[in-house]
Amino acid sequence: MSAPAAAPPVHVRGLVRHYGTRTALKGVDLSLGRGVTGLLGRNGAGKTTLLRCLATDLEASAGEVRLFGLDPERAAGRTEIRRRLGYLPQNPDFYPHFTVFGLLDYMAVLKELGSRRDRHDEVRRVLVRTDLYDRRHSRVRRLSGGMRQRLALAAALLGGPELLLLDEPTVGLDPEQRIRFRSLVSELAVHSTVVLSTHQIEDVAALCGRILCLDRGRVIFDGTPGDLVERARGRVWEGAGDPGDGCTSWRLADGRHRVLTPHGTDSPGGGFTAVEPSLEDAYLLYTGMDRGRG
């Protein structure tokens, strides 16, 4: 099965997904090209459901999903998509009695990678990239949480996927590994489409050229990190006083408060001055604003 030459890697129109009576996605539209796209949203916003639909793990209840121009609801299309896809699920569950190498070799077979030699070369490559090569003979059950997360990433990287879907990939990684992860994803994004769902705003800030904010099954923001930050300008304050009710605020290490004012640019009170917003401020404000509107 061949895909249309100019088809974008991800094209979604009106995607709806129900779980029984609950609707997790309520008409999502998006189109993604190369680069890293960050998927932000509160718990239950629909991020994982969207990723699972893109990963062909879930079928859409309604709407249209096209990956590389192919329809994942058709068996042939689904198989071809899966060949070109890497997916790191939220809770990867690996058979604990495999060795690290054995597991990836098994995954490589499932991904239809070629001969034994090619497969093993590819396994070694992803082991090096995820800094797991020295642990290749370890049993999966003996790995720490962070190592398992890297193993899941290594599995997703097998075969050099054109579309990489990462659902909270940095959970459990130490700071050094997170830096390595960012570097790796940046390299991959040169030739691939990467969708990164995370609560780690720093990762999004460091990696993503585009951000999608989801809230209750809808895309409420689609733009660059700069756009999002710009929307928060003039609504982030720091000062020594009590901001009172109706604002999102938290106490800083020096005893002052940082305050977000969702409904306007007025100071929350005397002694507060406007400061430069961060992406985290912007994300909190945006999801909070939407809630205020709804």
Binding site: A55, Y87, P89, Y95, L110, K111
Partner: peptide
Amino acid sequence: TPAAVREARHPGTPVAPLGRTAR
């Protein structure tokens, strides 16, 4: 049995060209 439990309980990746039935 261990291999069957592996397939039934620890799919590793839910998406691969070789699907559940093929596995």
